[in-house]
């Protein structure tokens, strides 16, 4: 026995096995009928589709098991289309599988690489042509062309400048000013401390001057949550405590992580939770982050009441609201 290692041999392509329809005329006829039936089912599907479009009103609802109350128009329209499409596919594939030739054939591959002669010719041509154009010699043209092509590449960037204004102080300023009244959202009603019971939470916005119209941009910066707890539950510095009023504390509703609305308040734990990424803020401790990806507490708005007893802002926010950005200093 030789010591040379001999691999197991390739037995070659197995002999072709004929299908029933290839040899039996009865089976062939049967397959033909099956294909025709599949095509006919598709045609019925299209008829159902047309029928549903014209004759089933779009306010008819039917009760179906699993699906519940279902719009009949939409359901039959869709089912008609699905049947029409699916059975064309089923017919074509059944046709191919039973009646079309199914003998495996072998084709040869060629390597992707060009043969050596072609490659040499290619290199020679490129060299000759570029020499004819003087690409190597005319460095003045080459450099000036580089300059002009480089510069013209800048023009789209210049054109895109007017896509938007420069940020300026847009991210750092909100509509809250000293003395701005807090109004309910929705409703735009001024709000008194006694309107909020202990444990209550309310969304407020700054009161607008009569000539102002509130935009979504304003809401995206101005939205504030008012929460009332028992004053003795606060664990705040003296300064921050002076920003609250009678157990009412106000935070920006725009998450300090990625700007979602921090809308879930859990009364028993006094936690505010952002539904986007589950950052959790502890209300009695000035919205300190106690869980999740947010790195900063929610900005607190200093509030008090005016002479008429309505809640007002003592001063603007002392830091930008919303997600972080490069120019933010704290």
């Amino acid at each position: 026995m030789s010591n040379e290692i001999e691999a197991i041999k390739d037995p070659g392509l197995p002999a072709h096995v004929h299908r029933k329809a290839d040899t039996d005329p009865v089976a062939e006829k049967r397959a033909e009928r099956q294909v025709a039936i599949l095509f006919l089912i598709s045609a019925l599907g299209t008829l159902l589709f047309i029928f549903a479009y014209y004759f089933i009103a779009d306010d008819v609802f039917v009760f179906l098991p699993v699906m519940g109350n279902t719009n009949a128009h939409q359901l039959l329209l869709g089912l008609g289309l699905a049947i029409a499409l699916f059975f064309i596919g089923a017919a074509a594939i059944h046709w191919a599988k039973t009646l079309m030739p199914d003998e495996e054939v072998i084709a040869m591959r060629h390597t992707m690489r060009s043969d050596d002669e072609d490659r040499e010719n290619f290199v020679a041509t490129v060299k000759e042509r570029s020499a004819a154009a003087g690409l190597g010699r005319r460095s003045l043209i080459k450099r000036s062309m580089g300059l002009s092509l480089g510069l013209i590449g800048l023009s789209p960037l210049v054109l895109l400048r007017d896509l938007g204004p420069l940020p300026k102080d847009d991210l750092t300023k909100t509509s809250w000013m000293a003395g701005t009244r807090l109004v309910t959202d929705p409703g735009d009603r001024p709000i008194r401390p006694e309107d909020l019971e202990i444990g209550a939470v309310a969304q407020v916005l700054p009161k607008l001057r009569p000539d102002q119209k509130r935009t979504l941009n304003d809401i995206g910066k101005d939205a504030v949550l008012l929460i009332r707890i028992r004053p003795e539950e606060f664990q705040l510095s003296a300064e921050r405590l002076s920003w609250t009023y009678d157990g009412i504390i106000a935070f920006s509703k725009i998450c300090s992580h990625m700007g979602c609305a921090v809308a879930l308040y859990e009364q028993t734990t006094k936690h505010l939770l952002c539904p986007c990424h589950q950052s959790t803020f502890d209300v009695p401790r000035a919205a300190k982050v106690i869980f999740g990806p947010a790195a900063r507490p929610l900005p607190q708005l200093a509030i008090t009441v005016d002479a008429e007893g309505y809640l007002i802002a003592q001063k603007p926010f002392n830091e930008p609201v919303g997600p972080s950005f490069w120019e933010r200093s704290s």
């Binding site: 869709g78 699905a82 499409l85 699916f86 089923a90 046709w95 191919a96």
Partner: peptide, 22 residues
């Protein structure tokens, strides 16, 4: 054969998508 299978398969995919949409 391959044409019929691939073409037919397009309709199958479209049909299944339409069914889900329905």
């Amino acid at each position: 054969a391959y044409m019929a299978k691939a073409g037919g398969f397009f309709f199958i995919v479209f049909g299944v998508t339409a069914f889900l949409g329905a």
